[in-house]
Amino acid sequence: MNDYFENTFNFSLPQELNMYYCGYRKNTYSHSYGPAVRDHYLIGYIKHGKGILYQNGKELPLYSQQLLVMFPHQKIHYIADRHIPWSIKWIGVYGKLVDSYIYSLGITPALPVYPVHDFIKTEEILDDIIRLSTKDTLADKILCIGCLHQFFSCIAGPKITHREDYVEQAVNFIKYNYDRGISASDIADSVGLERTYFSKIFKERTGVSPGHSLLTIRMAKAKDLLLHTRLTLKEISYSIGYKDVFYFSKVFKKYTGLAPSAYRKEAT
């Protein structure tokens, strides 16, 4: 392995998570970076060495087996200890998922240093990314993007999910599974929480119960299908997760004040 390597990654298809370049620096003495600003995320994994990060008048220590996340449009300046060889691997990444993953990990411009729990696996993934970035086939480029997802999964490690994350996951579960006959218990199971406790934190965050949220989505979809399609009531009932058309009609009337057929007729 050479002491320094960087490669540009040219693959424009996936906009949610992609990479501009990647590289490594090995066993370099008296290394420093910046002060500089970039328009994308530059994520460095410190394999060996230590240093100081200068940021907003503060000094943050840098150690091996840490990530240093350099945020877009934020000035970065660090100096490695000149007596210890500095080895670092990096990826320059962009996309909406990067924002989401970084936020979920609790990494911020004020706290841009993050401990790596499984440093062996993290290094292996970064090595794969660097290796695949030099390949020209579509299969290798797609695989390289897959390794980026794997990288974020690996560094997440044993991070505990917060209440807000549970609720967000549940809302997504409802949104994409309302047509499958799910119940409030299924929603709680989808995030791995006991139903009563989950209902409490869901209502604290949203103002409604999980069951009411599910009902609201189903009724909104039923209204849309009644107004904009010629589907039968039975077909609409099945489309929103009710196997019994009579039960669907009963619930719809209680929710809207009109039977489904009357709602459709009144709107035409």
Rank of each mutant, 00 (worst) to 15 (best):
V167Q: 00
L62F: 08
C144H: 13
H48P: 03
Y101E: 02
F248A: 05
Y78W: 02
K121H: 07
L193N: 08
V69R: 00
H149K: 06
Y21A: 15
I201S: 03
Y21G: 04
L105I: 08
K89H: 11
Y94R: 05
R25A: 14
I129T: 02
M219V: 13
R218M: 03
H212C: 08
G51F: 01
G106W: 04
I142D: 02
K250S: 14
H48G: 11
N10W: 12
K254C: 09
H149N: 09
T206R: 13
L226S: 00
R264T: 04
Y94K: 08
L111T: 13
G207Q: 05
L126P: 00
N27C: 11
H149Q: 07
Y21S: 06
Y101M: 06
P85I: 02
D244R: 12
Y255W: 14
Y33T: 03
W86Y: 13
A267V: 07
V37P: 04
Y4R: 12
W90T: 05
Q55F: 05
L68P: 06
I120D: 03
K141S: 08
Q66T: 14
N177A: 12
D118P: 04
V93I: 04
L126H: 01
G146R: 04
Y101T: 03
L105E: 02
G257W: 10
F252I: 08
S32I: 00
K121W: 00
L148S: 03
Y263C: 00
F9V: 13
S100A: 12
I46N: 14
Y41G: 00
L225M: 10
D179V: 07
V191L: 06
V191Q: 03
A262L: 13
P85G: 07
F71G: 02
G211F: 12
M19C: 09
D99N: 03
F71M: 01
N177C: 07
D3C: 13
Y20R: 10
D186I: 00
I236T: 06
S100T: 05
Q55G: 03
Y41V: 04
P72K: 03
S249N: 05
M1K: 15
R25G: 11
Y45H: 14
N177G: 08
L53H: 02
S12N: 10
H73S: 10
G92H: 02
A220D: 15
V69A: 00
G181Y: 06
K121L: 07
L111V: 11
T216R: 13
N177R: 09
F252D: 06
G257V: 11
F9R: 01
L231C: 10
L17M: 15
S209I: 12
G92D: 04
K200W: 14
M70K: 12
Y178V: 10
P14N: 14
P158E: 09
E16D: 15
H48Y: 13
Y197F: 11
H228Q: 09
L148F: 01
T8K: 12
V116L: 11
G23L: 00
S153V: 07
P61Q: 13
P112K: 02
A170M: 01
N10M: 12
P35A: 11
S32D: 10
L53P: 02
V191D: 05
S100C: 09
